[in-house]
Computed example of a mutant assay.
Amino acid sequence: MKYLVTHWERVIKLFIEHSILTFLSLFIALCIAIPLGIVVSRNKKAAVITTNFFGVIYTIPGLALLSFLVPFFGLGAKSALITLAAYAQMILVRNTITSITTIKPEIIEAARGMGMNKLQLALKVQFPLAIPIIVAGIRIATISIINLAFIAAFINGGGLGELVLEGIRTNNSGKIISGTIALGVLMVLTELIFRIIEHFISLKPRK
């Protein structure tokens, strides 16, 4: 705790770095996963192939994937961002597919009976009904990314892992504890934010 009090400025700096790394990689992952999940949800075979593909990526150890990417993208945040975004795909794509495929067929038929085209059906019916499950997937993916972002420190990617790694190398328990506490605070804050979002979404019942 002494290190946390005497070096709070550095801890906050690394906390911000970790947050940026987390939410930037999440944004990249969402830009890929949401459209992809919506598209492949229309075809059961495509959905299975896609989830299996990202499932294989998800089983690759984080450091192994980082090591593979470093020769192509170099040391630093770029390789870390790609790794984190890749790991998030499994959760995000799977939840997006589930959110679309679990909508009751009679709701879709009723919307078509009202004369809605595919775009209107997607924007006015499917996506609004899918939001609760998608948001739940985003929450889980974000918590996973926060944990995994620790490994960015191994390739000079920044974040709280840098503090913990320094503590391990120098046998400085103060750094390890400070980094762990800061990580816990980030996870709790993130969880609370998403719980609040999910609460407000749930106020509008899913038909």
Rank of each mutant, 00 (worst) to 15 (best):
K2N: 09
Y3M: 08
Y3P: 14
L4V: 02
V5P: 00
W8R: 03
E9L: 00
L14Y: 08
L24Q: 02
L26H: 01
A29P: 01
G37W: 00
G37M: 02
I38C: 08
I38F: 11
N43G: 03
N43V: 00
N43Y: 01
K45Q: 08
A46R: 06
V48K: 09
N52Y: 07
Y58P: 10
Y58K: 15
T59Y: 11
L66S: 06
V70K: 07
P71M: 04
F72V: 05
F72N: 02
F73R: 02
G74K: 07
L75N: 12
A77R: 06
S79Q: 07
S79V: 03
S79F: 03
I82M: 05
L84Y: 05
R94H: 08
N95D: 10
T98V: 13
I100Q: 13
I100F: 14
K104A: 15
A111V: 09
R112G: 12
M114H: 13
G115C: 12
A122I: 00
L123R: 15
L129Q: 09
A130L: 03
P132S: 14
P132D: 07
P132W: 02
I134H: 01
V135C: 08
A136F: 03
G137P: 00
T142C: 12
S144I: 08
F154K: 02
G158W: 00
G159K: 00
G161L: 05
I168V: 13
T170M: 12
N172M: 13
G174I: 06
I176M: 15
T180I: 14
L186A: 13
V188K: 12
H199S: 12
H199E: 04
I201L: 15
K204C: 08
P205M: 08
R206N: 11
